[in-house]
Design a binder for these strands. Structure first.
Length: 120
RNA sequence: GUAGCUAGUUAGACGGUCGAAUUGCUUUGCAAUUAGGAAAGUCCGAGCACAAUAGGGCAGGGUGCGAGAUAACAUCUCGUGAAGGCGACUUCAAGGAAAGUGCAACAGAAAUAAACCGCCACUAGUUAAAACAAUUUUGUGUUUUUAGAUUUUGAAAAUUUCAAAUCUUACCUCCUAUUUUUUCGCAAGAUUGUUUGGUGGUAAGGGUGGAAAGGUGGUGCAAGAGACCACCGAUAAGUUGGAAACAAUUUAUGCCAUGUAAACCCCACCUUGUGCAAGAUAAGGAAGAACAAAAGGUUUGCCCGACCUCUUCCGAUAUACAUCGCUUGAACACAUUGGCAACAGUGUGUCUAGAUAGAUGACCGUCCGCGACAGAACUCGGCUUACAGACUAGUCUACUUGA
RNA sequence: GGAAAGGUGUCAGAGUGGUCGAAUGUGCUUGUCUCGAAAACAAGUGUUCCGAAAGGAACCGAGGGUUCAAAUCCCUCCCUUUCCG
């Protein structure tokens, strides 16, 4: 679980990011991100009702949180972003999600240094 | 042993690393706790909060065999009745159609109501041109895939009827033409028989329909008929048993009247509305308009009743932000007493999720039968629906085998 | 979390107990018109199963019930849409 400083909480913050952010898609996920004034990188996760019932939605949320917690130290500051799950994600396992999140973050140039990318 | 019936239990286990929420101690950190039987559907019933209070009447809504349980109930328990099952047992929105209104297509002579055909008696008239009916011959046209037998079984209490089953048989690649046969319609002819009107009686028959004025059989009669009789059914009253629903039985009535109330309705009982996105944490102060009556507003769809001056700014004033509501409760476990039971009382013990973009997880290892349905959002009591596998109990039921 | 509305032929959409497999438009097929097409006009046309054919049976989101009879009335479930900050 993420510490509470690094979470996006309010409905209007989500709406602002959806309006003004850049969007990157992959097969099962999509990433929306925007630069901000605060130091901490903040992350939001949204899994819509189309993905499945409550149990499967919760499981996907937890797995995405674990992945973002793993990458959190290496991310740039002054960034807000949202990860949106698509309905096809239910067939993925944990490692598939990890690879996709890494691909998206790398494509958006959200990591601090290139050396860390090679290490991961 | 096989197949069932009923009542229940459980819902992978253990260890390690890294994290999240709440609480406590201490503030380095440590410790404890952290999702279900349905948390689901939101279908009922309550608590709780607000609407000045939650009042009266009507409308609207709900429930509907009896008694009990409960905070309450469309819930539960024990009974009654009906239906199903060989049985253990299961299922049932199960008041009123004689308070009134509405509806009942098609078919049928006739549909809630006694008339048409028919049958019978009396009376007037007619004697075969004509009409009707049956049988048959000829001509012509159209259409068509089945027909028969018996026994068995079941239902209506017996005669009889209906239904199902079984058996035999016809057709079976398609199209066209011709011939024959059968059925039906039309036209013409032959033979045989009968004839109409009126008044009265009657409700047997007219096989339709979900439903046809109690059913079957007999006596009886001009023809008939609960007109009378036997059995079965129905209705009413009484007696006995039971707390009651109701059951048993006796007597009387020739029978008073189809179905539908999950159509309106009647009877009995219950029912104010909105839902934690309820609501509380700010009471007050200043300015302006109005001041009686009237008008207007609020409270439930309407009426009564009740209540009320209004607007702006300041006030921690704000992106619905923070705190409370929020978890000790009609709570849970065990023992015991009362009760057939639902359940209630008493005693002892326990504190057992409380998040707010929303925690209860991710990865690794070991074991097994390889893990179904599924995620709290104010809280309880039920109902309904989803569900892999494993297990338990019963003086429980049926059949088979053995002693 | 709470509160409402709806589900009918390919599509839209009417039908609130009886001659309703279901009006009407749209789509599709055929014909007329034309050198050919469009438009217009006329006729036909739902799906599945059984059957040689004539024809018969089932289907109004799914499953039960009430009724002689249910797309319609009642109950349970499934799906879709909308509203409340």
């Amino acid at each position: 679980m993420l510490p509470s400083q690094n979470r996006l909480k309010k409905r209007k913050e989500f709406a602002y990011i959806y309006k003004n952010g850049k969007k990157i898609n992959s097969k099962n996920l999509s990433l929306v991100f925007v630069s901000s004034k605060k130091m901490e990188t903040r992350i939001g996760i949204s899994v819509s009702n189309k993905v499945g019932k409550a149990v499967s939605r919760n499981k996907i949320k937890r797995q995405i949180r674990e992945v973002t917690r793993f990458f959190l130290k290496n991310l740039k500051n002054h960034q807000n972003f949202i990860l949106v799950a698509k309905p096809s994600i239910t067939s993925c396992c944990f490692e598939d999600i990890k690879k996709e999140v890494f691909y998206l973050l790398n494509k958006g140039n959200l990591f601090k240094n290139e050396q860390n990318n090679k290490n991961n």
